[in-house]
């Protein structure tokens, strides 16, 4: 790397501990798509130079920018460890979690672009309106539906039955898949991969009895039949869920129940 700069104990705040670890700090450029609805008509790119350890995450660099350079930089993050699903962003053109993307995995010599996920209304900087996304999630009824009396003990399930939908239980609702889907970009009414994944999680759950209703919902005009199998969702998923496969399984379930 040409941009390597040896860190010599800056001795301010926590900087000293970083020097003690004797890691190589390099200067990276984050090119962040900024937007302030109160002053800007259009989003614009702004470059920030920030020192980062290559093994650090993009989120760390962004928090450093927010703390040291520009406090108005706005983004969501909560757990910062890839579980809460708050910080899905489009980094170097691909949807990823900022908290799971290491600096060293990107091209450090070039500016790293960071922008909001696409297809949802931009509110500020990297924050988008998640309501339509969450509404699609609610629409597929992501809760256990049963009939009859409540059992007196837990609802048992064989390991095989559990395995059937194991993959789709991993979803953290970060919206990386849905906002990478070209069909969702052009048609916001499409349920989107995330909602279908969460429907899949219950449709194929042996304890659940709402499969027919969920399939009926996904059989509608804006349901699974809009999927073009472009696999953007599978590539974007930070949890490694085989999203397109799940959608195809829902399609198959619909075909063999209806035809």
């Amino acid at each position: 790397m040409t941009a390597v700069v040896e860190e010599t104990a800056p001795g301010k705040g926590h900087g000293a501990t970083a020097a003690e670890r004797d890691h190589t700090l390099i200067t990276i450029t984050l090119r962040i798509r900024r937007f302030n609805p109160e002053t800007d008509a259009e989003p614009y790119w702004q470059d920030f130079k920030v020192e980062a350890d290559p093994t650090e995450r993009i989120l760390t660099a962004m928090m450093k920018i927010k703390a040291e350079q520009d406090g108005s930089l706005t983004f969501r993050r909560s757990c910062a460890h890839g579980i809460c699903g708050s910080d899905a962003m489009r980094i170097n053109g691909r949807n990823r979690l900022a908290c799971k993307t290491l600096v060293k995995d990107l091209d450090m010599a070039k500016p790293i672009t960071v922008e909001a996920i696409k297809g949802l209304k931009l509110e500020k900087d990297l924050v988008v309106d998640m309501d339509p996304f969450m509404q699609a999630y609610k629409d597929v009824m992501p809760f256990l539906i049963t009939s009859g009396n409540e059992p007196t003990r837990e609802r048992l399930q064989s390991p095989e039955d559990r395995e059937r939908f194991d993959d789709t239980t991993k979803c953290i609702l970060c919206a990386a898949c849905t906002t990478s889907c070209p069909v969702f970009w052009s048609d916001g009414q499409y349920f989107g991969p995330a909602a279908i994944v969460n429907a899949h999680r219950f449709i194929f759950d042996s304890r659940d009895e709402g499969a027919e209703e969920r399939l009926e919902i996904l059989n509608e005009k804006e349901g699974v039949w809009r999927c073009r199998t472009t696999f953007n969702c599978t590539e974007a998923c930070p949890r490694g869920i085989e999203v397109t496969k799940a959608i195809q399984e829902v399609k198959r379930a619909l075909i063999f129940r209806r035809v």
Partner: peptide
């Protein structure tokens, strides 16, 4: 096994 149409629950 998943539910069939006949015993689909009435959640409403």
């Amino acid at each position: 096994m998943s539910a069939t149409i006949e015993n689909a629950p009435k959640i409403h």
